[in-house]
């Protein structure tokens, strides 16, 4: 089970690869398919399960098309946070 997960808005992505460059786990790839704008959007190599949810890809993304989730042990959470 990976520690993190990202969701990419593929139609917003322009395939600039700045997220790939920023990713310390090297788990981002450009798709072979084109989106409606004609760009090859990025995708997460999920089978490697190596995404840590560090969010550096989102920090580097000029198109704000990455949403990041991270697994956190429940015991560390304050009850108010479990709603997330």
């Amino acid at each position: 089970m990976a520690k993190g997960r990202i969701v990419i808005d593929v139609e917003r992505c322009k395939g600039c690869e700045l997220c790939r460059d920023a990713c310390p786990q090297d788990v981002l790839m450009l798709s072979d398919k084109f989106n409606n704008k004609g760009y090859r959007p990025v995708f997460l190599l999920e089978h490697d399960n190596e995404c840590t949810g560090c969010a550096l890809c989102a920090i580097a993304c000029p198109d704000a098309c990455i949403t990041v989730y991270r697994q956190v042990p429940q015991r560390r959470l304050h009850p108010a946070q479990t709603a997330v």
Partner: peptide
């Protein structure tokens, strides 16, 4: 045995419009 839960750590800011740049 408590399962880890998923936390949202980054999302597109609300002050951005939905338009693509």
């Amino acid at each position: 045995i408590l399962k880890p839960i998923e936390k949202l750590v980054y999302e597109r800011p609300h002050s951005l419009d939905e338009n693509h740049t």
